[in-house]
Design a protein around this nucleic acid. Structure first.
Length: 209
DNA sequence: TATAATGTTTGAAC
DNA sequence: AGTTCAAACATTAT
């Protein structure tokens, strides 16, 4: 990497990419990762890049090198925040896995790259779909909504995150009462194949089977 | 203060 | 050979 110029900073889903002429550094921040620019703010950086005009530090993250052109590695149409995001492709991919529970489908990075557990819970609450619904049982309009809100909520997430008000906007995730029906939300510790936390309302979120 | 989680990879176990 | 599962990573809010 020494002496090579950064060609681009990019992202695909939860991957942050530092593109150099012959290789790409792939950062994944996992649960607790962070970065700082110019000053080191934490004890042990996983990666420290020095440039003529400054520095970048990455902490507690996964760092991997990718050979070659990222356009050969990544399918940008699957990235929910990309300009290249293609909802029709997402729909086709979902059609191929009708038995899959929607709670697992939303976390599938090959379909919804970038969507995580918080977004999963909030999207399903917004569209009033029970997390254990089967993809193939969703009415066409609900499927459309799920695909649309996966992208939509991701942009809300980013906006609120930057304003430090993300948590304040959660309607279901970690909540104990349904803001619509004022009944206790169901909290499941390990739901679906992904075995991730789920928060949902048994009244307004419809189970499609 | 102890606990659990916004996520992924690895490797053992089945 | 395929899947399933827990551990590991190590920080932070609750």
């Amino acid at each position: 990497m020494t002496g090579q110029k950064v060609v681009a900073f990019r992202s695909w889903g939860k991957h942050f990419l530092i593109v150099l002429p012959r290789l790409t550094v792939r950062i994944h921040f996992l649960l607790f990762g962070s970065y700082s620019i110019n000053e080191q703010t934490k004890p042990a950086p996983r990666l420290h890049l020095k440039f003529k005009n400054g520095d970048i530090f990455f902490y507690t993250c996964s760092v991997r090198l990718l050979e070659g052109d990222p356009d050969e590695v990544y399918d940008w149409t699957a990235d929910v925040m990309s300009d290249a995001w293609d909802p029709k492709k997402a729909r086709a991919r979902l059609k191929a896995i009708p038995e899959t529970l929607v709670c697992d489908a939303l976390l599938d990075q090959d379909i919804f790259a970038g969507v995580g557990n918080i977004i999963k819970n909030e999207v399903l609450f917004r569209i009033r779909v029970h997390p254990e619904s089967q993809v193939g049982a969703l009415p066409p309009r609900k499927l459309t909504e799920m695909i649309r809100e996966a992208r939509n909520y991701s942009f809300d997430f980013l906006k609120w995150k930057k304003e430090f008000v993300l948590r304040a906007h959660w309607l279901a995730h970690t909540k104990s009462e349904c803001p619509r029906d004022h009944v206790p939300l169901t909290r499941v510790k390990h739901l679906g194949k992904a075995r991730r936390r789920a928060f949902y309302c048994g009244i307004c979120q419809v189970l499609y089977r």
